[in-house]
């Protein structure tokens, strides 16, 4: 197959073709619908059965009881293998696979994701200071500086 002129068509087409690479981080990726990213915790659904802890292959989840039917969650992002088995194991949909994937950090602390427990119902503990409207999970990892 020695045809010296054969490449010119490809050559000219390549000049005008969009590059095969993405302009990340300037252009963001659209994650597929089934994507298994960082695990999110919906505190008000958790019943503390710890099935997620039992099934986690990487021992990355810690669910702790902080009050009557109130549980907080800690995820070790360095250990997590993002299989989302915990999401399947959870009987009450308290865990979800989010589309967050930029989880690298500059130190170990940034690899720990902490989710507060749901606020206690006002009747149960009147002493509890200012219960929040929505259980807002702390943003555990700051998005890395795209310039770096």
């Amino acid at each position: 197959m020695i045809r010296p002129g054969a490449m010119f068509g490809t050559l000219i087409a390549s000049v005008f073709r969009k590059p095969a690479t993405h302009r990340y981080p300037a252009a963001r990726f659209e994650m597929p619908a089934n994507f298994r990213g960082q695990i999110g915790f919906i505190a008000k659904n958790c019943i503390g059965c710890r099935m997620c802890m039992r099934d986690c292959p990487a021992d990355a989840i810690e669910i702790r009881k902080v009050g009557e039917k109130r549980f907080e969650a800690r995820f070790d992002l360095g250990r997590c293998i993002y299989c989302a088995q915990c999401v399947d194991s959870c009987p009450k949909s308290a865990l979800e696979a989010t589309d967050r994937y930029e989880l690298a950090g500059y130190n170990q602390d940034q690899l720990k994701a902490f989710f507060e427990a749901a606020p206690a119902p006002p009747a149960a503990s009147a002493a509890q200071a200012a219960p929040q409207e929505e259980p807002s999970p702390k943003e555990p990892v700051p998005a890395p500086d795209p310039g770096k």
Partner: peptide, 9 residues
């Protein structure tokens, strides 16, 4: 590990 965990291993 349990069978469920082994799948991922």
């Amino acid at each position: 590990r349990t069978y469920t965990q082994d799948i991922y291993l």
